[in-house]
Design a protein around this nucleic acid. Structure first.
Lengths: 353, 353
DNA sequence: CGACCTATTGATCGGACTCAAGGTTGGTGG
DNA sequence: CCACCAACCTTGAGTCCGATCAATAGGTCG
C-alpha cells in the first residue's frame, strides 16, 4: 500500500482530502504545517507528498526546499495544492522542482489521477524498468507523456543479427540507437595494429553505443553480435529528447554513466598493475555475474578464447596458458567452449589479491 | 544581438509584442502559424522562441514537439503565450519541456523579464561557465533561482592545501564537494600492493570527486594537491539538488560524464596494447594541453617523475629511461623537474603510431 | 651544510608476446 | 552419414619489454 503525506493547514480541506485518499486505499499521513510535514516525511519516507503552499510556520516552498536537501527525500514526487492558480506561484514551484500542482477546490478524479500518474511514473524509474521490449515501450511511453505516443510505436523497428554480424562500426553515424531485446552483443575498440579491446558486454535491456549519441552522434566503438541477436532501433532524437526533457530520465542516465565510469576506473587500475592471471580471474567472475545469472551454476559461460583475450587485454595464447593453469589448480573447468567456475572463493581471492 | 522568434496568429498581439521586443533591441522573427514558425526556427536558429498555444495549422505543443526532435533546436529556450492560464494547458506545456509561460495580456516588464532571465540562463549553460569562484557563484545562483540565494553564499567556505596534502581519501564520506579555485589536484586509486594510478588531473574550475557523489556518497578515489591549492567546499546536497532539479545542469553533467567516459575508454585501449614509450608520449601531450595552455611554450610542465609514472601506469625507472630516450632523440628537453616538448609533431606521431 | 628526498643509471630477472606447429570442434556438402 | 574443410583451441620455443633491486648523482630545504 502506498503512503501519501498530506500537508495542509486548513482542517476541513485536510480531512476531506484525506478521506478521498483513504477511500482509494492509500495510507495517509496528515500534517498541519510545514515543519511537522518535513519531520514526518523524513521519518516515514512517504511515496508522495501533497502540500499546500500558503501555510504558517514553513510554507510549501520551504518544505520542498528542505526535502530537496537530502537524497532520500529529494526524489519523492511532490504535488502542490494552491488556492489560486497564481502564475508566479506555480512557476516558482515548478522551478524548485515540484512535479505537479492542483488548484483548490479540486475534484476527486483530478486528485486521484494526478497522484496515480505520478506514482506510476516514479515507480517506473525507481525500480528500473523491465529489461524487455515491453519494458522499453512502457518506459518510452511514460517518459514522453501519453499524448506523444502515437508516432513512437510506428518508429519501433526491430532487426536481427547473426553471430559476428556488426551492428555498427566505430565512426558510423548513429541515427538510431539499438536497444538489445534478445542475444548478446560486445562493443570494442581497435588499436592501430588491429588488436581488439572489449569495452563492454551487453545483455537484453541495454542500449548499445549511447556514448556516441552524446558526442557528436558518431559511434566511439564497434558493436558486434556474439550470438543470434534481436534489437529494437530507437530513433536517436527520441532518446535525446527524453534526456533533455525529463529529469527522471536524466537522473537515471547520470547514475548509469557514473556506475560505468566507476567500473572503467577500476579496470584501468587493474590493467595498469595487475598480472594477466589476476585479470583473467576478474574477467571470469564478471562474466559469470553477468551472463549466467539465470541458469545458475550448470552451464558456465560460453565464449571464444579470442573474445575473452580481448576482454582481459592480452594475447590469446597468454590467456589460454592462464586458463590451463587455473584448470590444473582446480579453480575452473572447461568443456569445449564453456568455462565453469568450480572454486568461486579461491578465484575471488586470486582476483582481489 | 539576440534573435527571438515570435509565433502568434493574432496580428495585433504579434505586432504589439514585436514592437516591445524591438525597442528592447532584440531582433525579432515573426511567424503567424506553427508550421511557419518551425521552418523559421530551423533555418535561423533563434536564441529564444515565444509561441502561442492556440493556433491554426500546428499548435504550440506541436511546435515544441517538432523543435524537440532535433538537437540543434531542442535546447532553445521556449516560452508559451497563453490566453487563459488553464492549468491543464500549462502543465502539459511544462511536461513537454517548455521553460516558462506568459498569460496574455502581459505587461511589458513581465515579458522582458521572462525573456532576459531565460536568455541569461541559457547563455550560462551553453558557453560553460567561468572557471573561477565567481563563475561558480554565478552558476549556483542562476541554477537555484534568485530566491534561494541567501543560505548558499554563507555555506561557501574555502580551504587551502599545501603540496601533497590530501583532500580526501578513497572511501571517505563526501559531505562537501571540493571545487578547485586555484592550484592543481590529482586524483588516484591505489592497488593492493600500494601502487598508485592517477585517474584524473584537475585544474581550477573542476569539481573533484563528483563521481563518488552519485555512488552512495563515498569517494571512489583519493585526491591530493600537487601544489598550493585553494578549494571552495560546496555542500553535497546543493549539487545533488541542482542535478535533480535542473535540466540544464543535468545535461551539462551528462555531457561532461560522457566526455570523460570516452577518454577513459581510449585510455583503456592504450593501456592494454600500447608500449610504455607510446603511453609516455601521449601523457606528455595531454599534460601540455591541460597545464600549459596559459603560459604558452616557455616553461613546459613541472611534474614529479613518480606522479608522471603513475599517470602512464608504469614503474618510475621505466618512465625515466623512456624520458631519457626521448631527450636523446630530441623530442623533448628537461630542466630539473620541468619537461618541455621540442618536437611536437614527432611526439604526436609517436603517440598515435 | 648536511640530511633527506628525488632523479638517474646499471644489472638482472621474469612475465607476457610472437611465431610456429600440431590438435579439436563443428558445420557443410556430397 | 561420413569425410573434409575451416575455424578455433592448445602447446612449445625463443625473445623482448618492463619490473625490481641496488647504487649513485643531483636538488632542496631547514
Amino acid at each position: 500500500m502506498k503512503t501519501i503525506l498530506l500537508i495542509e493547514d486548513d482542517a476541513d480541506v485536510r480531512d476531506n482530502t484525506a478521506e478521498i485518499l483513504e477511500l482509494a486505499h492509500y495510507r495517509v499521513l496528515k500534517a498541519q504545517n510545514g515543519k511537522q510535514g518535513v519531520d514526518l516525511a523524513r521519518k516515514e519516507l512517504p511515496d508522495l507528498v501533497l502540500c499546500d503552499i500558503m501555510m504558517p510556520e514553513l510554507d510549501g516552498y520551504g518544505v520542498l526546499h528542505m526535502l530537496g536537501r537530502s537524497p532520500e527525500t529529494a526524489e519523492i514526487p511532490f504535488i502542490f495544492l494552491t488556492a489560486k492558480a497564481e502564475r508566479s506561484d506555480v512557476r516558482r514551484g515548478m522551478e524548485l522542482g515540484a512535479d505537479d500542482y492542483l488548484t483548490k477546490p479540486f475534484e476527486e478524479s483530478e486528485l486521484l489521477n494526478a497522484i496515480e500518474g505520478r506514482l506510476k511514473r516514479s515507480d517506473l524509474f525507481r525500480k528500473g524498468f523491465d529489461r524487455t521490449l515491453n519494458g522499453l515501450n512502457d518506459f518510452m511511453e511514460q517518459a514522453r507523456g501519453v499524448s506523444a505516443l502515437e508516432d513512437l510505436s510506428k518508429d519501433r523497428k526491430t532487426r536481427e543479427y547473426g553471430r559476428k554480424d556488426v551492428l555498427f562500426h566505430e565512426g558510423d553515424e548513429l541515427r538510431q540507437i539499438p536497444f538489445l531485446v534478445t542475444g548478446k552483443v560486445r562493443t570494442f575498440k581497435v588499436n592501430n595494429e588491429g588488436k581488439e579491446f572489449v569495452t563492454g558486454l551487453h545483455v537484453p535491456g541495454d542500449f548499445i553505443g549511447y556514448l556516441g549519441l552524446l558526442e557528436g552522434g558518431h559511434a566511439t566503438e564497434t558493436a558486434e553480435a556474439l550470438e543470434e541477436t534481436e534489437v529494437a532501433l530507437v530513433p536517436r532524437e527520441d532518446l535525446l529528447r527524453l534526456l533533455y526533457r525529463d529529469r527522471d530520465v536524466s537522473m537515471r542516465f547520470i547514475r548509469m554513466l557514473s556506475q560505468e565510469m566507476g567500473e572503467k576506473q577500476e579496470r584501468l587500475l587493474q590493467l595498469a598493475y595487475a598480472s594477466v592471471r589476476q585479470r583473467v580471474a576478474q574477467a571470469l567472475l564478471q562474466l559469470h555475474d553477468r551472463f549466467s545469472a539465470d541458469h545458475s551454476e550448470d552451464l558456465g559461460v560460453r565464449i571464444s578464447r579470442d573474445d575473452l583475450a580481448a576482454i582481459v587485454g592480452t594475447a590469446t595464447e597468454s590467456l589460454i596458458r592462464c586458463l590451463t593453469d587455473l584448470k590444473d589448480e582446480g579453480l575452473i573447468s572447461t568443456q569445449g567452449r564453456d568455462i565453469r567456475i568450480t572454486d568461486h572463493r579461491r578465484l575471488q581471492k586470486l582476483a582481489n589479491l
